[in-house]
Write a protein that binds this DNA or RNA. Structure first.
Lengths: 241, 241
DNA sequence: TTCCCTCCTTGTTCCAGCGCAAAGACGCCC
DNA sequence: GGGCGTCTTTGCGCTGGAACAAGGAGGGAA
């Protein structure tokens, strides 16, 4: 899935070739001719983000567009009472914080590294120029945004109608991606707290729910990791409240 | 706000001139030259929707793009257990069901008339052609989508962290638009059930909350109408959970 | 005017899930 | 290898809000 050869060294070698390969694998850049991708790749620069550090904060001027090269990040928002929710998880190869590339002047959420990460960055003004210059790019971004909007709306429905049990089951299934019926057991690497923030509940409740499922043999609940043993049973829990 | 002169007859007279005027007032068409708007207006046709009827249903092929000409509509999704939530309210002049114009093949939600309404309709294929042909239109739509995504994310935060009191207060404030400090009292015309569906709660709870506020003199709770008497007090309720 | 339909109010009961808090397990750093 | 910080588990009490239900009131149609 990642465009980055797994044997290359973690944070040195972000050569223009590697950057081009990464960009070519991002859905919205796929529509651009290779020459333009090469041109863009030259404008991006790599930045190392230690685990736990923020790439940007909610409310800061959105002057940069980002792509996760290695490591995962979470996009979070903080409520008035201090509670946090995780809006999205960013996997290697995914763009994020693109708000500045289109209308918004400030980031609507914060981005924080879940692992030690390397992020490719581009000034939003440059991105915006390419958006104007290449209609195909604009349409590809449009499709991506539309998909994200549909996802967000599905989550609203979830949050307002489904109970915690179902929400956690659904989040786990979504995180491991398309179901692998007879395949090997899939894992989700995430702390209980992050899982709680992702499903709009509390650490205590998430922990309790996972412990119960562990006991029933549906998942294997370890430290910062949940392995799905019985995807079918989880799907049932996700289906009806 | 509406582009439609208030004295014209409700549903006859949707001449091409009136259609053009309506389109010109829609933010994403504003970027098109007047000639193109006229051309587009000729392609739209008007349809009357009685109160309570559906314009389209969730899951149907998204072959048409719509604009509310008169009357309001609600965009709703139904959960597995039958509960409904209102995703958006469409005011006269607003486009909706545009999913087919970009990626999606089916409508992700249903649209139902809150009032007796007139809707202008355009085949999604036509819309898509204009999207490809006019980059400025694509960028305008992009901005609109980005704004909707931010709104949806704000609502996720709300749903997952705020309590019912705050959510209802916030919904009311949002529905009357930007705060009018010393202005006349603003009203929200919506049934308790719709307000409940919009805030992810139940009819009973919404009714109780509004009754309590009515007694405290913060709002005037009438049949299918809530008038805000003390916006400042509401803002306080919306602020802290 | 009368009927009927939709919308609203309000009472009672119950439980899912949160808040709080204390203790246990794991892994990392020095 | 010991100390420490982070992550996790679990018990208990409490409460916000849902479920269910019965009654009331406004408004449109005929």
């Amino acid at each position: 899935m990642s465009a980055v050869p797994p044997h290359t060294s973690p944070q040195s070698a972000w050569t223009i070739e590697r950057r081009s390969a990464l960009l070519a694998a991002v859905p919205f850049f796929a529509s651009l001719p290779p020459a333009v991708i090469g041109e863009l790749a030259a404008l991006f620069h790599a930045k190392t983000i230690p685990r736990g550090d923020f790439v940007f904060h909610e409310g800061q001027p959105a002057e940069t567009v980002h792509i996760a090269a290695t490591g995962r990040l979470k996009i979070i928002r903080t409520a008035a009472d201090g509670r946090q929710i995780v809006l999205r998880l960013i996997q290697p190869g995914e763009p994020f914080g693109v708000a500045g590339g289109w209308g918004a002047v400030t980031y609507p959420a914060s981005a924080r590294a879940l692992d030690h990460a390397v992020v490719l960055q581009l000034p939003a003004r440059e991105f915006s120029r390419y958006l104007h210059r290449h209609p195909a790019l604009a349409l590809a971004v449009l499709n991506d945004l539309a998909a994200r909007l549909r996802e967000a709306e599905a989550r609203i429905l979830d949050a307002e109608t489904a109970n915690v049990e179902a929400r956690i089951a659904r989040a786990l299934l979504r995180l491991v991606g398309p179901v692998t019926p007879g395949g090997t057991a899939q894992s989700v690497v995430l702390s209980r707290q992050d899982l709680a923030d992702l499903t709009g509940t509390t650490l205590s409740t998430a922990s309790r729910v996972l412990s119960a499922r562990h006991r029933r043999g549906i998942v294997l609940a370890l430290r910062e990791r949940v392995t799905i043993l019985d995807a079918a049973a989880l799907a049932v829990l996700a289906g009806e409240g």
